[in-house]
Amino acid sequence: MFKSIRAELAVIRERDPAARGPFEILLCYPGFQALTLHRLSHRMWHSRLPLKLPSRLLSQLGRSLTGIEIHPGARIGNGVFIDHGMGVVIGETAEVGNHCLLYQGVTLGGTGKKSGKRHPTLADNVVVGAGAKVLGALTIGPNTRIGAGSVVVRDVDADCTVVGIPGRVIHQSGVRINPLAHSALPDAEANVIRNLMDRIDQLENQVVTMQTCLRAIAAGQPIKEVCAGASQNLKDREILEFLGE
């Protein structure tokens, strides 16, 4: 337990430029406080003694003090950092690997009413952005980033970036990214819309070219002379040659 506490102190000082010293972290960081209380309630939850209710009461106390709700049954690794943390919910069968980073409003929630494993498993070095929801008994691979506001409902491989609702995977292989830069994510919707607009412009140009040639045909003009040089696009020239024939 004390080894985990020392690891979390070191990670906070490394990742948060606002952390000025261990006493400030101990007194003013709700994420650290919630994890410390969870270490104790987790040991009580898995004790041979009948301490289920006291462990739940301790977790509720942590929720009241910090705004972070962690079920005593959840398994959390070393060096985990919950930044700010208000509104974070971690379910009973959730597992969080070493050196993960969770921002405020994150939910590691379950789906359905069946007993057993029903919450997500996060491997090591996973970053979950503010307000993101990871739902169900799925697995998030190591070194994965989940963008703010995303909703993840499927397994994710290692070294991926996930954005959107539902979450879509965008691979970032070979690129080292600052774990705190969870907002610097690609905009998948904007890229799709941009590609569609480019395609629409191309099709409109082809339609205009065809209309010019058809009017020339209707007026009895020589099609090749009217349409010569009308377009620099290879597909447009193929269309003109077809109309000319």
Rank of each mutant, 00 (worst) to 15 (best):
L9C: 09
W45Y: 15
V106N: 04
V175L: 10
Q206I: 13
G141H: 11
R145I: 12
A181M: 06
M44I: 12
N125G: 01
L101T: 14
L196P: 02
N195Y: 03
K114R: 15
G67C: 02
Y29M: 01
R20C: 00
Y103K: 06
L9K: 10
I170R: 13
V127G: 01
N178L: 01
R56A: 01
K3D: 05
T93M: 03
L214Q: 14
G167R: 08
H99L: 00
M197S: 12
G141V: 09
D155T: 10
E241G: 12
R194E: 06
L240P: 03
G21K: 11
M1Y: 11
C160N: 08
R56Y: 05
I193D: 03
I5N: 02
T139Q: 00
G109F: 07
G116D: 07
T107M: 01
G136M: 07
E189W: 13
G112A: 07
S183D: 09
L185P: 01
S47W: 11
L234I: 15
G141P: 03
E245Y: 10
A10F: 04
G91A: 04
L240I: 15
M1A: 15
S183A: 09
I76E: 01
I82N: 02
Q232T: 15
Q206H: 15
K3C: 02
L51C: 07
F32W: 13
R13N: 09
S55E: 00
I68Q: 04
N98R: 14
S41C: 07
P50E: 05
I217C: 02
V152Y: 06
I76M: 02
R237I: 10
M1K: 13
T111N: 09
K117C: 00
M1L: 07
I140G: 03
G149T: 11
C213Q: 04
H99N: 14
S47R: 12
A19Q: 10
G167N: 06
V207K: 11
S231D: 04
M210W: 12
K114T: 14
V127M: 04
L53N: 09
V151F: 04
E69R: 13
K113L: 11
R63H: 15
G97A: 07
V127Q: 03
D124S: 10
D159G: 03
K113T: 14
T107V: 12
G112D: 08
S115Y: 07
G112Q: 12
G87F: 06
G244D: 12
H38W: 05
V152I: 10
P72V: 06
G174C: 09
